[in-house]
Amino acid sequence: MRLLSAFAIGLIFGLGITVSGMINPAKVLNFFDLAGTWDPSLAFVMAGALAIAIPGYRMTFRQPAPLLENRFQLPDTRVIDRRLVLGSATFGVGWGIAGFCPGGALPAIGTGQPEVYIFLAALIGGLFLARILQAGIPARKAV
């Protein structure tokens, strides 16, 4: 039941990424290309997602606990530090180069296109690299 529900939710996300166009790096890169072949579509993806997620989260957090778990797992950090800002800035540079973000690339696995696997392998390499660089610094829970 737990796994079936997780699979179905992943499927809804994957369909959303596919239908929205976020799965296509060319479209993502054009969203960033304000001075060139600008394609504003991705602003609509964000708007559509937040229009559902804001009221949906509000209703969800009125419940004492999630349906199948004891508690909501939320990030407990609130500090805005250099890690957050420099990490986000770095992510943006990579996103601007490759056009894939992690949430776009995971559903793209299903298309079987080799670029997707190459990107994901490099992404996982980057996650490991960061883990090695961060060794010694107390681990922070990922969002």
Binding site: R2, S5, A6, I9, G10, I12, F13, L15, G16, I17, T18, V19, S20, G21, M22, S41, L42, F44, V45, M46, A47, G48, A49, L50, A51, I52, A53, G56, Y57, M59, T60, Q63, A65, P66, L67, L68, E69, N70, R71, F72, Q73, L74, P75, C101, P102, G103, A105, L106, A142, V143
Partner: peptide, 25 residues
């Protein structure tokens, strides 16, 4: 894009409401 975004938002809400987790890749 709006419809796809709405599906992404729905998935985020369901993952929190059912499993208590952030839908972060």
């Amino acid at each position: 894009s709006l419809a796809g975004g709405a599906l992404i938002g729905l998935a985020a809400v369901l993952l929190m409401a059912i499993h208590g987790r952030i839908m972060g890749a």
